[in-house]
Amino acid sequence: MGAAISAVYASISDVDEQERQRARQDLEVLQRAVEYKLDQFDSKITEMFLNPEAMSRTQVPGLRALRKSRYTSVGVKGTKIVSSALEGILSTTSAGEHEEQRFFVYVQYNAIIRLDVMLWRWNFTGKGFSDKYENAFGYLICTSVVDVSALKTAEFVYLISEYAGDSDEEVVKYVKAMEDIYNRSRKLKQSQQRLSQLEDYQY
């Protein structure tokens, strides 16, 4: 998906001083632009975690971040960026800013997962800013778990059915298995909490 900005920094160490200074200035501007957009999206996700009740009026909110992944790159003229999953925003050649924000709610590892994805790209036109770089690109991906109790019954049934299939028997079977996992996990957590409290009391 293009050269990571940190890698591009390393690759320009052997060029002449004037070219190196110009390239570094271009890269610094690109870095700030991409990081600014990703920081904005990151703040939006944080706001969801801090105010889940407000978010729940329009979306299914996650509890808190389990994983976050951030990446920034620049596209060097003459190279191609290829990815079927992100083809829309990566293949666009029109000049200017292109941004896409999506979230997905699905079942994974017997839990309801929310995946937030933000893609940002800026395509340059002509000369003036840089004769070498043609675009800047960055993405931020955040994975969080959804509180099952916050889901409406119809929403829960839809997600479980989407995961387990259209067979009523299979859906019921999976719901029972999921219920057993949650009950066992809840008991284990309570047992660990009591043990921790006992250890704190002893010390």
Rank of each mutant, 00 (worst) to 15 (best):
V145I: 12
G138Q: 01
E53A: 01
S11I: 03
A95I: 14
Y109P: 03
G96V: 08
V8Q: 07
A23S: 13
L90G: 02
M118K: 06
V145F: 04
R121V: 03
M118G: 10
R114T: 02
F103I: 12
E179T: 12
V15W: 07
T143N: 01
R184W: 06
Q31C: 10
S13M: 14
R114G: 01
V107E: 12
E28D: 13
Q202R: 13
I113F: 06
K152C: 00
V34S: 15
Y203C: 12
V15S: 10
E17M: 15
T125V: 11
L38T: 07
R67P: 00
V148N: 11
L50H: 05
R186P: 00
E97T: 07
K176Y: 08
A177P: 00
D200M: 13
V74S: 07
K68M: 11
F124W: 05
E97C: 03
K77P: 04
I89L: 10
A10I: 05
R20C: 04
A154Q: 09
L188A: 15
R64T: 08
E28Y: 13
K189S: 10
N183K: 15
E99D: 13
Y163T: 01
E17D: 12
E179L: 10
E28P: 08
E170R: 14
G78T: 00
G126P: 03
V148G: 11
A10M: 13
M48T: 06
D166L: 10
V145Q: 03
K176P: 06
